[in-house]
């Protein structure tokens, strides 16, 4: 089979590989290279070494601000989303009638795209704040918590579905055995249910973690007009396309350098996740 199939490389693998190389692989390599240059357009570039990386921290205070904001935002969303999603999953696995309807409702926001979602919430939040005569740009706190609410609204249903699957995978006999051993519902939750859904907790934590960390569309739609509430992805975008002060070539080089740092942070999270998953697989 292997020998026969090998000849069919142009049919089976080449189209995907070509598209992959042109839209991802080559741009990625070029991107790493450009982060060490100043460039107005890709063809006119000047090697500057690690100058861009230094400049990010010395001349552009937005990067550290948005990094800190992203970390805060990610922390708060991971916590709130997972706690609420898990609680909902518990309620919906009690064998009540009509759980399917609730599941459908809670999951629905997840399918709506970030841009549309951001504008829906922008209208609502501004509508509420309108009663107090301000809008979302008035205080960075509004933008931050608006984003947290939005993220919760979008992700809770999704995580809830994963938790439900995890809870349903626990054999009934386990809770029954615990009940016979004299556990009350609370003890059953703490000593049986939660330890048994730890795999789902890992998956959900990392999903919410990466999704929050990389958030862009929602951020642009909701906080595009308030400069103090840009998360990392939006800050990089703005460095490239929306800036004043330095020369264009410097902004571009700096934007690419920020992107490299952003990539390394995301890769670090992915690496930790891989370790966490592997470790669990070994234990079982």
């Amino acid at each position: 089979m292997q020998k026969m199939l090998k000849k069919y490389f142009p049919v089976f693998a080449l189209p995907t590989l070509a598209a992959f190389a042109i839209s991802f692989l080559i741009p990625f390599i070029l991107g790493v290279y450009l982060s060490f240059t100043e460039f107005k357009v890709v063809s006119e570039r000047k090697w500057v070494g690690i100058e861009n990386y230094i400049r990010i921290f010395s001349q552009d205070e937005t990067f550290l601000n948005s990094l800190w904001l992203t970390v805060k935002f990610t922390f708060v969303s991971v916590l709130t989303i997972n706690i609420i999603a898990f609680s909902l999953a518990l309620l919906l696995t009690k064998g009540l009638k009509g759980t399917n309807f609730f599941r459908t409702v809670f999951f629905m926001p997840n399918l709506i795209g970030g841009i549309v979602l951001g504008h829906i919430w922008s209208l609502i939040i501004n509508g509420i704040l309108g009663y107090f005569g301000v809008d979302i740009t008035y205080d960075p706190k509004y933008g931050f918590w608006g984003l947290v609410i939005l993220m919760n609204w979008q992700m809770i249903g999704y995580m809830m579905i994963i938790y439900i699957a995890g809870i349903q995978n626990i054999p009934d006999s386990l809770s029954e055995a615990a009940a016979i051993d004299g556990a009350n519902p609370w003890q059953n939750l703490v000593h049986v249910t939660i330890p048994m859904v730890m795999p789902s907790v890992t998956i959900c934590s990392f999903l919410t973690l990466t999704n929050s960390f990389k958030l862009f569309d929602q951020n642009l739609a909701l906080n595009g007009k308030s400069p103090d509430t840009s998360l990392l992805a939006l800050d990089i975008y703005k460095t490239f396309y929306d800036h004043t002060g330095l020369k264009l070539a410097q902004w571009h080089g700096m934007g690419q350098a920020k992107a490299v740092i952003f990539f390394l942070l995301v890769a670090l999270i992915a690496f930790i996740q891989l370790r966490a998953t592997r470790q669990r697989e070994v234990e079982h």
């Binding site: 070029l30 990389k214 862009f216 992805a233």
Partner: peptide, 30 residues
Amino acid sequence: TRLMYYFFVFSMIVPFQMVMYTMTYYAFEL
């Protein structure tokens, strides 16, 4: 093929911002 596979998996963890500028450049060039 093993190398191809690793590249594909690797691309999953790279955020879009990393390649957005250069990819756009190639998209216009080609």
